[in-house]
């Protein structure tokens, strides 16, 4: 059975918001965990999370100081912050509201439940006491939705566009984390050298890659191996290489895919071009920036080929 363009677009965005909700929650949770292990004065600033989510200007319009409290309020309890959890959870729900007819019956209840949980708990969860529970619950509920989709949605167009949305959002998040978090670690240039493995380890945790890294690479966490894993692991489903390869596979199943496939090929070629041993902070930033531009072109190609043109 074919699929309405407008429905395909909403599913794509539903998946992006679902991935964004989970990734943002994991980013906050990991950072929160990390901060307790780092000696005073050596920790990255709280608003590094705002940098990762590329939301400094919006954040500064609401808060003067990038303090713990303000950053967490912004990401956990502010339903107008487009990079925050409440916004993403709501946007996900609005997209499911208009596509529930093509999703498994339970999808609406789960997505609605996540939205209600965030709405009810967010206000009291930006403080340290409830934060952990809140974030774990959000991550768990997102995983449940992904599990439902994976286990019971037929492998037709609905699944295809959901998968595309998730892969592209995941690539986006992974590159952002690489740019900002890796950049911060590299900026330290030997200061606080003892905590460097801890920082690289956290970067892996943000991407839920720590266990996979240990098994594939080993227990020693350092810069080149970490960058290489995040960028080029062929087996880890959040590595950029994996995401790009799967994106290509999904696109090949669709009609009229030439334009989008060309954009994907450009991403793939770019992947080979980073020397993880020698790369400097500036080179990494330039590389990621360029990669993100290509990713945006792929997103635009998908919109132009299969969607309506109305934005989510």
């Amino acid at each position: 059975m074919s699929m309405l363009s407008s429905v395909a677009e909403r599913l794509y965005w539903m998946a992006r918001y679902l991935e964004r909700t989970e990734d943002t929650a994991r980013l906050i949770k990991t950072y929160n965990h990390l901060i307790m292990d780092i000696p005073k004065g050596a920790e990255p600033p709280w608003d590094i999370m705002i940098d990762i989510l590329d939301a400094q200007s919006m954040f500064r319009a609401r808060f003067k100081v990038g303090s713990e409290q303000n950053v967490l309020k912004f990401l956990i309890a502010d339903d107008k912050a487009t990079c925050g959890i409440p916004f993403a959870a709501r946007a996900m729900r609005e997209n499911v509201r208009t596509t529930r007819d093509v999703l498994p019956e339970e999808a609406w209840e789960l997505v609605n439940g996540l939205h209600l949980f965030v709405e009810n708990e967010a206000a009291r969860s930006s403080g340290r006491r409830h934060r952990h529970h809140f974030l774990s619950e959000v991550i768990g509920r997102c995983q449940m939705i992904n599990g439902l989709i994976g286990a019971s949605l037929p492998r037709d167009h609905a699944y295809g566009f959901i998968k595309l949305g998730r892969l592209i959002e995941c690539t986006d998040m992974t590159t952002r984390v690489m740019d900002v978090a890796a950049g911060d670690i590299m900026n330290r240039a030997g200061r606080f050298g003892t905590i460097e493995p801890l920082l690289w380890g956290s970067l892996l945790q943000v991407l839920s890659a720590a266990g996979a890294y240990r098994r594939e690479v080993g227990p020693i966490v350092e810069k080149a191996a970490t960058l290489n894993f995040v960028l080029r692991s062929t087996e880890f489903p959040r590595s950029i290489k994996y995401c790009v390869r799967e994106t290509r596979k999904e696109l090949m199943r669709l009609k009229n895919h030439d334009f989008a496939i060309r954009a994907t090929e450009r991403l793939r070629r770019r992947l080979a071009r980073l020397d993880v041993e020698q790369v400097t902070r500036e080179e990494l930033h330039y590389y990621v920036d360029n990669f993100q531009q290509q990713l945006n072109r792929l997103d635009a190609a998908i919109h132009a080929t299969w969607f309506h043109g109305e934005s989510a």
Partner: peptide, 8 residues
């Protein structure tokens, strides 16, 4: 109707 496979 406008679908991802064209018109149906």
């Amino acid at each position: 109707m406008l679908t991802v496979d064209g018109s149906v």
